[in-house]
Design a protein around this nucleic acid. Structure first.
Length: 388
DNA sequence: CGCCTTTGACCCGCGC
DNA sequence: GCGCGGGTCAAAGGCG
């Protein structure tokens, strides 16, 4: 995430805060205000139109697991103490950085009013904007009703993926550097939905259960800290992540995931985490961190939200939710897949039946949850400008 | 030997 | 068109 993104996020955070009764979590971004959408009666995840079920999007995203602890990741180096770690999540759209967001359908007067950005100049934008204007979950709630769009996006994403794969496979030894990317010029690069975590951590590269290979590092403008680029080492899994340290708060690590894993976590869930899955709940994440979108019914989620509104998640923007891996995605981008899924494995979070037990255990065990306030937001520059 | 990181060069999109 | 900045590639080297 570059400075721009950070600014956008912060701006929108403040914006949301103005429109809601807020619970702030200065530990996440010092000086920034974080609205507590969790206390808004379950509408916080309704990034959709009014005719959209408010739960759909987040259900699909797996945000029912909002009770996840801040110590979501396994800070394998143990450098990060539990007391110093917190986290928030930020949804980002494809082309987040380079696409100017068009004016939103409605200002973020309420969380639910925050319409997904129609910024996509790519096909995903067309899909999201045309089929279900600015409704991230509208295209992903129901795989059947949005099959066409999903397939469309699938085709597009797979086409891209196939192109990339083809590029990789066609890489001839004699290929020179200047011939590296014979990309079609009229083919705009399409990005996967992105999903960012901000964690208080001394460790840059957090162990999220997947194996990553660093493929690049760039200096970040206006930041003394470089940004590292990682790619999932699993063959045919194009998930990437960027890791950078916040220039504003060096103790904060921003991890941005892009794409969707097409495979289970190669790393065995830590049984040593001490929280075993409950027998009465689905734990599909244990085998498929990405395949399960709806472990919880909406009311369960709402229950959780009402019970535990302490966490803070920030929804930066509406991704093209129907960009998914046909092999694993189940039709929706699931930002929780890389993290909450793992959490699900490790902590058995997100279970309605365990939300009060396991989560409370976690509260007792880690004492971190208070640091996080669940929230969600959509990132939209134009929106920000409207409020400025 | 395989996997990973490092790093400079290159590509690409965007704003001016 | 040019420059800037983000993102990516791939050779080289390190490490277990």
């Amino acid at each position: 995430m570059d400075g721009r993104e950070t600014e956008e996020i912060k701006t929108t955070i403040d914006q949301i805060s103005m429109a809601n009764s807020t619970v702030f979590s200065d530990e996440i971004i010092p000086g920034s205000s974080f609205a507590s959408f969790a206390s808004s009666g379950g509408s916080i995840f309704d990034m959709s139109d009014n005719n959209q079920r408010s739960s759909g999007f987040m259900d699909l995203l797996g945000f029912q697991d909002f009770n996840m602890p801040p110590s979501l990741f396994d800070f394998s180096s143990s450098q990060t103490t539990s007391s110093s770690s917190s986290m928030m999540m930020v949804m980002m759209p494809p082309h987040h950085q380079q696409q100017q967001p068009p004016p939103l359908a409605s200002p973020a007067s309420t969380p639910t009013a925050v319409a997904p950005p129609e910024r996509e100049s790519t096909t995903s934008e067309v899909l999201n904007g045309s089929t279900a204007p600015t409704t991230p979950n509208s295209s992903s709630i129901s795989s059947s009703s949005n099959e066409a769009a999903a397939n469309k996006n699938e085709d597009q994403t797979t086409t891209k993926a196939q192109d990339e794969e083809a590029d990789e496979q066609n890489q001839d030894p004699e290929k020179t550097q200047k011939q590296l990317k014979p990309k079609k010029k009229n083919q705009k690069r399409q990005r996967e939905p992105r999903f960012a975590f901000m964690t208080k951590s001394e460790v840059d590269n957090l162990d999220d259960g997947y194996r990553w290979r660093k493929y690049g590092q760039k200096a970040v403008k206006n930041s003394p800290y470089p940004r590292s680029y990682y790619r999932c080492t699993t063959v045919a899994c194009g998930v990437k992540k960027r890791v950078e340290r916040s220039s504003d708060d060096p103790s904060t690590v921003v991890t941005t995931y892009e794409g969707q894993h097409t495979h289970p976590s190669p790393i065995t869930p830590r049984g040593t985490m001490g929280i075993a899955p409950l027998p009465d709940q689905p734990c599909a994440f244990s085998s498929s961190p990405f395949g399960v979108q709806q472990l919880l019914p909406h009311h369960h989620y709402q229950q959780q939200q009402q019970q535990q509104p302490q966490y803070s998640y920030i929804y930066s923007s509406a991704p093209s939710l129907n960009i998914s891996s046909p092999a694993y995605g189940g039709g929706a981008f699931n930002p929780s897949s890389f993290s909450t899924g793992l959490l699900q494995e490790r902590y058995n979070f997100g279970s309605p039946s365990s939300s009060s037990s396991a989560a409370s255990n976690l509260l007792r065990d880690h004492g971190l949850l208070q640091d996080i306030v669940p929230q969600i937001r959509k990132e939209a520059k134009e929106e920000d400008h409207l409020h400025q």
